[in-house]
Amino acid sequence: MSVNINGLSVDLPSDARVSLLDLLRDHLDLPGTKVGCNQGACGACTVLADGERILSCLALAVQYEGRSVTTIEGLTVEGSLHRLQHAFIEHDGFQCGYCTPGQICSAIGMLREVQRGVPSLVTEDLSSRSIALTRDELRERMSGNLCRCGAYNGIVEAITEFAETSK
């Protein structure tokens, strides 16, 4: 039984209680994925499973057999930062940096959801195939990622810039 983490095949733990989060942090020494509550309330542990954002604290590692998981460490390619990571630095989208890996992974997953036309609470036309990434759409969709330092404005700027330059 194995799971693919950032392109490498990794054995799943024999203890079925191990969360995907603890597999990453404790077993694989990939501490870029953070723990803020361990109960799905803060978003710090967000990773991408086959491109979808998930909360790794609420996921048992064994459930991800055969799946591909990308963590913050996997976004950096040969030491060079992802454009969204650059944008977070440029717009000061963080202070302490602890929620940041979760924010960045969440934003990447979120932008794919918008692209696919998945509506949110603030989407006005639910039947529309294309959703504009307004400030409110972005804020609503990123509200599952808490930032206690309050870098929310910078996070919006960073994601907006990245989304606009990715078109």
């Binding site: 990939l30 501490p31 870029g32 994925t33 963590t71 913050i72 460490e73 976004l75 950096t76 930062l81 990571q85 650059h86 977070f88 630095i89 963080f94 302490c96 940096g97 940041t100 890996p101 960045i104």
Partner: peptide, 8 residues
């Protein structure tokens, strides 16, 4: 910043 955004 680079360390914080890359999880290192």
């Amino acid at each position: 910043g680079p360390q914080k955004v890359s999880g290192t």
